[in-house]
Design a binder for these strands. Structure first.
Lengths: 350, 350
DNA sequence: CTCCTCTGTGAGAGCGCTCTCACGCTCGAT
DNA sequence: ATCGAGCGTGAGAGCGCTCTCACAGAGGAG
């Protein structure tokens, strides 16, 4: 069951008892000081604090958990959709935000990265009372974890919009608005024929960004030509393949919104190979504002997501959920930002 | 002290006692079954297992920790060197490897990402017996954590070579060999005048990759011209600035080894801006084999590091260290691999 | 038939902490 | 003077588990 056989672990360390002895008070009083109860006289508090310092006392988390039935730690569950997570810095940026928010609150971050198919074990862990709540960074739709936690009453908050029917609080980025903004920018730059390389249509960001593309066209009084919409899988190769198809279908296009920077980079290489100048012949906008956007030639205009903010917001929602047993799910949707670079600079002509 | 005030947490859940009652045995026997002791008769074991299933019993980790003085979790401490971590997928790749290795062993991964300057709190946590050991992904030299843990006897393993004097086991990638391999490749491709954009010289990878560069030149019977060595800070801009200086100092150079892909990408844009064809005029090799290497034009030849392997190796070392109290530090140094792409293709001429 | 070993099981202590309850004290109101 | 309220403190139970020890019974050796 357990992995480590070493018998003598964690050298003794001072206990509450020891501190009480040194300070000349009872265990209960030391406990009160440690837990910042107001019901302790200043003098006693001072002497206890001195004893704590002297002994280098740190409360034993296990003992405390045992009685409080709280673990003071929360899980971040990342079910990795293969490929995606490694290709952009979403994950580290998000985790850092979460980590910072938790540290301030004296909560511990337990990271779970279940292999695909290993969800059962993860569910067992989460419902086993090992954590006070879970943050689910769950990017694929069939994930069974949200339902399992809801059923067992484990507080959970999602990062990313859940599929309909999952009734949990979540934090999301406004992908639709991002797609709209990217597309509108292309129209503003004077593009007549704007195509899109959409994301996978079984993922919310893929769907939403495409919706945003349509919104912008409709708002500008344009028609949405289905021939100008091709889906990719968020990868470089997928973007390249989609671009080939778009150029075949519509050689005259002069603007492309790609739903990820990686796809935009793929599209860029195809455009170049087929003799199109970017941005002069075809303007291009990506999504994510990843480091790649700065290194392509020309650098990519892209949609920046406030990923750092998502972590703290999600933590806030989770702590609310933990505090008030069951309550109405809430949602936080963050706005995106357009970062202009050369790939969509206004063309000279007409 | 604690962050969450909710009183009623973690719905009761079955205890050992309850399982024992249902199975008609004593707590001790249930404990034996749960901990896979061999000293239980098959019949009793079966009935206990049935009871466990029936009640959905999960052992209470806190109670167990309290008596075993083990936490069955290990910390991964990432003290982020600002900028670096977000620009390449090192972090997620490493963490995934660690996570997988720990899951197999039923250990929990507790992730600590102390803000710079917040090391004291992290040290308190680590030495407070909350984890059985720590994996330190500590990329900057002045980190006080390794010493603090050594002093307090907390098992620790480093990812990345520590500065001299820190006497802990570690896992590292052979940066020197990587630098040598990259440089040798350029020489093999026929380059006469090979420069390098080195990494920061206060970081081990920066120093080692530069040493490798020198090794290759010396082995080839060339002289090492200090004018052909300029340091960057691993960023795109740093690489660009360094390339400018190199071209100013030595217009005739025909090969460049950049100690990161990001710097290589920066160098690439400068080379192009100054009219050099890559690879025809100047061959270029990067480092990290990050996604960026595939998206530049031309794609970058780069040095691939076996980051996925580092995690499991580090976990192995740590578990050894935890098992055998104090023992000789060990080191694991992993080899790199050259990934050839167009940026260093053999030139036609001479 | 006695003694010993070995195996499977149960009884019970105790890990370090929190929290309820009770108690003694000091005040202000009566 | 008497009472009650409120405050600071201590005593003690008990959270769920592991682990040592004791013990009953089975079997083998003498």
């Amino acid at each position: 069951m357990t992995a480590i056989d070493g018998r003598i672990r964690n050298r003794p360390g001072a206990t509450l008892e020891a501190v009480a002895l040194v300070a000349g008070v009872s265990r209960a009083t030391v406990s009160r000081v440690v837990n910042e109860s107001p019901r302790v006289s200043p003098e006693v508090r001072a002497s206890v604090e001195a004893a704590i310092r002297q002994l280098g006392y740190t409360p034993n988390r296990a003992a405390r958990s045992l009685v409080t039935r709280r673990s003071d730690s929360i899980a971040v569950v990342i079910t990795e959709p293969p490929g995606r997570l490694f290709s952009d810095p979403f994950f580290p940026r998000l985790v850092r935000g979460v980590s910072a928010a938790l540290t301030n609150r004296n909560l511990q971050l337990v990271l779970l990265m279940p292999e695909h198919g290993d969800e059962a074990r993860t569910i067992r862990y989460l419902t086993g009372g090992h954590v006070d709540g879970a943050l689910l960074v769950s990017l694929h739709a069939e994930d069974p974890i949200p339902e399992a936690l809801t059923a067992r009453g484990v507080p959970a908050v999602l990062v990313g919009r859940p599929r309909p029917g999952v009734d949990l609080s979540y934090v999301d980025v406004d992908n639709r608005q991002g797609g709209e903004r990217a597309t509108r920018h292309l129209l503003d730059q004077g593009c007549r024929c704007v195509a899109t390389i959409a994301g996978p249509q079984d993922m919310a960001p893929g769907v939403d960004r495409l919706d945003g593309y349509r919104d912008a066209l409709v708002a500008a009084g344009r028609e949405v030509d289905p021939g100008l919409v091709v889906s990719g899988d968020f990868t470089h190769e997928g973007g390249a393949a989609a671009m080939e198809r778009l150029l075949d279908a519509c050689p005259g296009l002069d603007g492309v919104f790609a739903a990820s920077d990686l796809m935009a980079a793929g599209a860029l290489s195809v455009l170049r190979a087929r003799g199109r100048q970017v941005p002069d012949d075809v303007a291009l906008v990506g999504y994510d504002d990843s480091p790649i956007a700065e290194t392509t030639l020309p650098p990519l205009t892209s949609i920046r997501q406030p990923i750092e903010e998502m972590g703290p917001d999600a933590v806030r929602l989770l702590i609310d959920a933990i505090g008030h047993g069951d309550h109405v799910p809430r949602r936080v949707v963050l706005a995106t930002q357009l970062v202009e670079r050369a790939s969509s600079a206004r063309r000279e002509r007409s």
